[in-house]
């Protein structure tokens, strides 16, 4: 059961009402969002709290890595930067390996979570990635 697999690292995504959402931080004082999550706002050093960053966005840039993949990822695998709709952040992310050959800048994508590669101990784990929005 995939549901029993651990996340690749804790605190990067969680289940939302309509699928997984990406987690980051929000500054309690200046309200900026951050990804990856951080404990202190780098501008005002106020404490941050965990914030949902949403699940939808568009591809800003993408590439397919064709060398021997790290972390038990598939060969080839795809990564990119995604501009998130809700918070305006541009986040580095894995992209659905099944999208190789169909990746395009501007493509609308949504977050998915599935078994993908291995964790630091070489064990299978869940990883978040962006896949194409249903047509």
């Amino acid at each position: 059961m995939t549901a029993e697999l651990p996340p690749f690292v804790p605190g990067v995504f969680q289940a939302g009402a309509s699928g997984p959402v990406l987690l980051g931080s929000r500054c309690g004082s200046c309200q900026q969002h951050f990804f990856p999550a951080c404990e202190l706002c780098p501008d005002c050093l106020s404490a941050t709290s965990t914030a949902e960053l949403g699940a939808h966005g568009r591809i800003y840039s993408h590439t397919v890595v064709r060398t021997k993949p790290p972390l038990g990822l598939p060969a080839p695998y795809a990564v990119g930067y995604v501009d998130l709709d809700d918070c305006g952040l541009r986040v580095f992310a894995l992209l659905d390996p099944a999208l190789v050959g169909r990746l395009q800048i501007g493509l609308p994508v949504r977050l998915a979570v599935a078994p993908l590669g291995t964790d630091q101990h070489g064990q299978p784990c869940l990883r978040p990635y962006f896949t194409a929005e249903p047509a």
């Binding site: 840039s61 993408h62 590439t63 890595v65 972390l71 930067y81 992310a93 894995l94």
Partner: peptide, 20 residues
């Protein structure tokens, strides 16, 4: 670093600049 755990490798970081 989280990016490393998400598959970031040096050539990818520059390939993403190149593609853009």
């Amino acid at each position: 670093e989280l990016e490393t755990q998400l598959g970031m490798v040096m050539p990818a970081s520059f390939a993403l600049r190149a593609a853009r």
